[in-house]
Design a protein around this nucleic acid. Structure first.
Lengths: 190, 190
DNA sequence: CAAAAAACTTAATGTAGATTAATAAAACAC
DNA sequence: GTGTTTTATTAATCTACATTAAGTTTTTTG
């Protein structure tokens, strides 16, 4: 198991060596190539993914058949479709590696057992979710209060490296406008 | 303490009578009149609120000084500003009762103690957050994939009662368009 | 219940960003 | 390294919704 997950957990709760060992028994590492899918819409999402390296995107299709990026996950983020994961129903979203990615995985069938053995992880996941939820609310706020151009400039200023790593049409989709528009904005002045 | 919180918790974890008693020692009930503030931007948000009755809104001011509704909380929802709550820094959002509201409150200074005594609540809050987070991601998806008019119609179809209870200009703000536009949409056909 | 404030409506005008379409440049595959 | 696919650019036209502003209805308050 990657040390990155251990390091991440350490920022929220302190595990004993014993607990770390137990954790290692319950997670696996997986590798995905560029554009490979971790989950396709229609399948049940039975795993939670921690991104060790690379970038994932969660997306789905709108009525017009256009792919809409709901979310990016980068190093140090957890992703899953909680709707599907918790209900066992087929997912309506897909999860794909934008670039080559390494992930640490926990399976739904094992999670409760793990959490029972290492209750500190309940606290860890709760805290991680608090941050993710707060960030998601803030994103909504930005969507409504910034123009498309402002959204791009503010995002690019906050995540300059990320903006370089990800294809422009995916970034445009994530920020809620067209690639053509992003192209125009970039032409103006970087 | 209201039975509604107990009932809500029961949907996620099973508390013993002993645990319920402990919980009661750590929470309080508060009552807020219409338009009364639970939290004002600039203050530190040191509480988590569970809505027993009524409607709360979380909002902040954009650069133009216009109030933007970030979130509504109705019966059975928890709200807080996690940024402020977890960091102790002043909040940038306000929390206000839209209509007379009764809330069950837990204080930040007591929460860890309570969670230590009743670890099941870690699990409860984790599960509640998973839902809230998933809902927030879905909202983002709707914002980008539905037109303003579709967003209103879909929201009104899903929450017909809520749409009646809340002033139109707040609903418009929450859905990300102007009250004038909502007025026009409603005039067309309900 | 009268006056003031708050919330809602209507209509004219303006604009950010979508759409379409065609071309160009990268990235990929054999 | 040449052909093919994927991604990015540019420009003309179009539209959903914002803005402004004036008027109306509803709610609140003393």
């Amino acid at each position: 198991m990657s040390q990155k997950l251990i390091a991440h957990i350490k920022r929220f709760v302190q595990l004993t060596d014993e607990e770390k060992k137990i954790l290692e028994d319950y997670v696996q590492t997986e590798q995905y190539g560029k554009k490979e899918h971790l989950l396709e819409a229609g399948e049940v999402c039975s795993k939670k993914y921690f991104v060790v390296n690379g970038i994932l995107r969660m997306y789905n299709l709108n009525e017009k058949g256009v792919e809409q990026v709901i979310h990016f996950a980068i190093e140090g983020w957890w992703v899953t479709d909680f709707f599907s994961y918790n209900s066992g129903k087929p997912s309506r979203v897909s999860l794909q590696a934008v670039e080559e990615a390494e992930v640490t995985v926990i399976d739904a069938s094992l999670e409760n057992e793990l959490l029972a053995k290492v209750p500190k992880l309940e606290s860890y996941f709760r805290q991680v979710l608090e941050r993710a939820y707060a960030a998601s609310l803030m994103r909504t706020h930005y969507i409504f209060n910034l123009s498309a151009e402002e959204r791009y400039r503010s995002f690019a200023a906050t995540y300059p490296d990320f903006v370089q790593r990800v294809p422009q049409y995916l970034l445009a989709s994530y920020l809620g406008f067209t690639p053509e528009f992003l192209s125009k904005v970039r032409a103006k002045k970087e």
